[in-house]
Amino acid sequence: MDVEPSRTVQGARVWDHTAPGFVALSVWTERIAGRGEDADPLIVVHWPTARGLIAVFDGVGGAGRASAGSTPVGQERTQAWVAARRLRGLVEEWFVDGPSVDALHDKVVTRLAADITVRSRMRGRIHREFPSTLAALAFTMRPDGVRWDVVWAGDSRCYVVEPDRGLQQLSLDDVDGSDALDLLLQDPPMTNMVSVDREFALNRWRGQAPAPCVLVTATDGFFGYVSTPAQFEHVLLDTLWFARDPAHWGELLAERVAAYTGDDASLAVVALGFKGFGNLRASFGERRNLLRHEHDEPLRAAADRGEDAVRTARSDSWRKYRGGYEQRLAMVVGEDDR
């Protein structure tokens, strides 16, 4: 189901919703007007069961640039563009219909490219038909916290952010290698993503955290063009710090990401267990200051001293940041019962 954005700013779209103990926000931007291959971020909640889902979808243009056809007004759409949007619909339907990840996999296999007969002659290990990433976080709100099932394919990511522990990655990119700073610098090709012409895996992992906390899903346009992994958290919390309300936070995020990204970028956020937006902002004030002093300011100072200094500052930042950022990845095989 499509929902009208609450704000549209220079082509970016922002949605927000607030309820007691609940703040939801999503942001969508495109690098080239009219050609954005990310689908709109998805946020759905079923209040009677206290279940919800946030998800993002990045149509992979590098793997699926072939045309899937044209719109009624003659605008050509790539397979990647179509795949991300159809996948969004299938994930929303999956949330409503039933919880089995296998059922979602079956839906995607049978329906992602249904009724589209266009096929490219292009082949090779990079190429895919109707390729898209998926990063989805299905959650259940409880009085003492939140439990989640993370489902992903590709290099879009799921995170949890806790006021005292900061940003923690919950999904492992489907690429060769796992060092987040290396991945940032190398941008390697994906080894797995949703598509219709070959087998793909929907990775899954279950975890939980005490309330209050923030759940995040994002495409690589948000986290893949910053200097260090810490910088993405700084972008999230620094914009939160200056925001008047959820929609304004979304506006600031859209403005900030447009200034640094080289890709389409989308993000979905739910903040659970905070006593309103002011409490959410205040809860992360100390963490934002830490990021600013220990990571952002040293990088800024290094930028004036040349590339070698920037590399050293990046490595220093990652060395200090990595333990907290990866603390839940050590348990990615199995269940995080924290």
């Binding site: 940032l184 620094d238 640094y260």
Partner: peptide
């Protein structure tokens, strides 16, 4: 510092 000024860590990797 305004949030608009605080962008130095942004990457612009080429």
């Amino acid at each position: 510092m305004s949030q608009n000024q605080n962008r130095s860590g942004d990457n612009n990797l080429k």
